[in-house]
Amino acid sequence: EHQTACDSYWTSVHPEYWTKRHVWEWLQFCCDQYKLDTNCISFCNFNISGLQLCSMTQEEFVEAAGLCGEYLYFILQNIRTQG
């Protein structure tokens, strides 16, 4: 039997508790949902936990993801305040 992915999907966990996999799933979702250019995102810069992600500043997001960084930063802040 296969496990259902939704059990541990990033949407069901507060961002501060995300694993590295959750972070990448979220990035992929943002790219799909908001039509962000994946080429401007250095995924290696996001090989981090949710706690590390949440402690990043807006400037660090821009450094890590170029033009997309600002969008990603605000998307994350939205999730954190709603969560």
Rank of each mutant, 00 (worst) to 15 (best):
L51E: 14
D37E: 08
E59K: 10
T4N: 09
I75M: 13
N47Y: 09
S55N: 12
V13I: 14
C44P: 14
W18K: 02
D32T: 10
Y34H: 08
Q52F: 03
I75T: 15
L36R: 03
D32F: 04
E16V: 10
C68V: 11
A5Q: 13
H14T: 06
L27A: 04
N47Q: 11
Q3F: 05
Q58I: 09
F74Q: 15
C31E: 04
I41V: 08
G50S: 03
F61E: 03
E59W: 07
V62W: 05
S49V: 06
Q77D: 06
F46D: 05
E59D: 08
T19Q: 10
L67K: 15
E60T: 01
F46W: 08
V62I: 13
F74K: 15
D37P: 07
L36H: 07
Q28I: 15
K35W: 05
Y9C: 11
Y73S: 00
Q77F: 04
T4G: 09
F43R: 11
L76W: 00
I75G: 10
T81C: 10
G69C: 00
L36P: 01
N45P: 04
M56Y: 06
C68K: 12
D32A: 14
L53G: 02
C68T: 13
S49Q: 05
C54S: 03
C40E: 14
Q58E: 15
L76K: 00
G66M: 00
S42A: 11
L36I: 07
A65I: 04
N39E: 09
L53T: 03
S42Q: 12
T4I: 13
L53Y: 00
S49W: 00
I79R: 11
W26L: 05
F46S: 03
N78S: 11
C31M: 09
F46Y: 02
G66N: 06
M56Q: 00
Q3V: 01
L67S: 15
K20N: 02
Q3S: 09
D7A: 08
S55R: 12
W18M: 00
I79L: 13
Q82S: 11
V23I: 13
N78K: 14
T57V: 03
E63W: 04
E25L: 08
D37N: 08
H14Q: 15
F61Q: 02
C68I: 07
C31R: 06
K35R: 13
F29N: 08
N39A: 14
F29Q: 10
H22L: 04
E25H: 06
Q3K: 10
V62F: 06
C40D: 11
I79T: 08
R21E: 15
Y71E: 15
L51F: 11
G83I: 09
V62E: 09
H14C: 07
E59G: 10
E16W: 07
F74M: 15
F74T: 15
D32Q: 15
T81I: 08
E59C: 06
E16I: 15
S49I: 02
N45L: 08
S49P: 06
C6R: 09
T57H: 02
N47G: 06
M56G: 03
C6S: 07
T38E: 13
C30G: 00
A64I: 06
N47F: 00
D37G: 03
C31Y: 02
T57M: 05
R80F: 01
E1Q: 01
T4K: 12
T81A: 11
L27C: 00
F74E: 15
M56L: 09
N78H: 05
Y17E: 15
H22A: 06
G83T: 11
Y34M: 06
Q77A: 08
D32S: 08
G66W: 00
F61A: 02
Y34Q: 05
L27S: 03
N78L: 03
A64R: 13
V13P: 00
D32L: 06
L36Q: 01
S55E: 12
C31T: 12
P15C: 02
Y71I: 14
K35L: 07
I75E: 15
F43S: 10
A5W: 07
S42P: 09
S49A: 07
A5K: 11
Q3I: 10
W24E: 10
E25I: 04
C30F: 04
M56R: 03
G66S: 04
C31F: 06
C44K: 11
R21D: 15
Y34N: 07
H22V: 04
Y73P: 00
N39R: 09
P15W: 10
N39K: 11
E16P: 03
R21T: 13
I48W: 02
T38S: 13
C44A: 14
G83K: 13
G66Q: 02
T4V: 11
Q52R: 10
Y34L: 06
Q82Y: 10
D37H: 00
R80I: 12
V23M: 00
L51R: 14
D32V: 10
W18A: 02
H2C: 12
G69Y: 01
Y17L: 11
L27E: 00
D32I: 01
Q77E: 09
C30R: 03
S8Y: 15
Q33P: 05
Y34D: 01
L76C: 05
E63C: 05
L76Y: 02
F43H: 10
G66K: 03
I75P: 03
H2Y: 09
N39D: 09
Y71R: 15
L72W: 02
Q52A: 07
C54V: 07
N78I: 05
E16G: 02
T81E: 13
E59V: 07
L36K: 03
D37T: 02
F74H: 14
C68E: 14
D37V: 00
C31D: 02
K35C: 13
Q33T: 14
L27Q: 02
D32M: 08
L67C: 14
Y71G: 11
F46E: 05
C44R: 13
I48P: 04
D32C: 08
L67A: 15
L36E: 01
V62T: 11
E70H: 10
Q33W: 03
N45R: 13
E25N: 06
R80V: 07
F29H: 09
C40K: 15
F43D: 10
N45F: 09
N45A: 14
I75K: 15
D32N: 09
T4C: 13
N45D: 11
E60K: 07
M56N: 00
E60N: 10
E25R: 08
E63F: 02
H14F: 07
Q58G: 02
R80D: 01
I48K: 09
Q77R: 10
Y34P: 07
L53R: 03
E70V: 04
R80E: 02
L53P: 03
Q33M: 07
F29E: 07
Q33E: 14
